[in-house]
Design a protein around this nucleic acid. Structure first.
Lengths: 140, 140
DNA sequence: CTTCATGCAAATAATTTGCAGTAAG
DNA sequence: CTTACTGCAAATTATTTGCATGAAG
């Protein structure tokens, strides 16, 4: 049984080809918007409907299989649930890179939920800038 | 001349009643979605059009007067541009609170842009959880 | 005056829904 | 078998655009 089938089973979801493919392309590319997922999956599974993509993203988000990454001025992207990390988002090409959380940041956040009358459940750190690739291209 | 008129003038934008009111309600409530802004402003300026709200938000965002706060699974909210801070977002009531960035966090981020081949331009830290008010209500 | 902003209505894009048919366990 | 999932088409919701009129500097 594949990695994806296991994730789905543990969430009580059936392992359809649609879902397997959605998970697989998100895994391959790291972070994808709804349309990107659709365009990519229909290459291998042409009968897929966009509505199915929407329904499944919502469902898999609720089940904690997927995580939504909201992005300033863009449509949100989706990633597989994984260990804590931060995002480096390129404002030129839109690419999103993961970077592991540093200890320092970890601790800073941990102390927050105590200080505040706030039960912390999830954190999201997005750093916006221009990636190396785009900076190279701009220079030429 | 009001605070808002100054902000607009410095950005090269005309000070219309519409804009003044949009800025004023965002300032009053802290963080607002497009519809909330519209609903609130028409109370005092009933002829306002929703399209005008959209146009101005886009424009004032480009000019750096407003900042978009993207939120997981919700429509984005807008705030006045202000000193660096992080957001505490309540997943129950949707309320957004600002909290000043701690030194620790500051430094952690600063070191990032050096390490990485990435020109850091802006950062956005969102902490999701349940606010005190909602926790109280849940307990009752 | 001159330029830029507004409001309206229409166009487009994004997301959700209901339902009959199909596949997974 | 039984329940959950899919695809389609239609409905909703969100956002953008063009243009004639009106207001700001």
């Amino acid at each position: 049984m594949t990695h994806y089938a296991t994730m789905l089973k543990e969430s009580g979801l059936k392992s359809t080809f649609q879902r397997m493919n959605i998970l697989s392309v998100i895994d391959k590319y790291g972070h994808m918007a709804v349309d990107d997922i659709y365009e990519e999956v229909i290459k291998v599974h042409p009968s897929l409907s966009l509505a199915t993509v929407y329904k499944n993203i919502l469902l898999m988000k609720e089940k904690g299989v997927l995580v939504e990454v909201p992005i300033m001025g863009k449509k949100p992207k989706y990633e597989l649930a994984k260990e804590d990390h931060i995002h480096l988002i390129c404002t030129e090409c839109g690419n999103v890179e993961d970077k592991h959380c540093m200890d320092m940041t970890e601790k800073a956040f941990a102390s927050l939920s105590d200080q505040e009358a706030f039960r912390l459940e999830r954190r999201q750190v997005n750093l916006y800038g221009v990636c190396q690739k785009c900076r190279m291209e701009a220079a030429s």
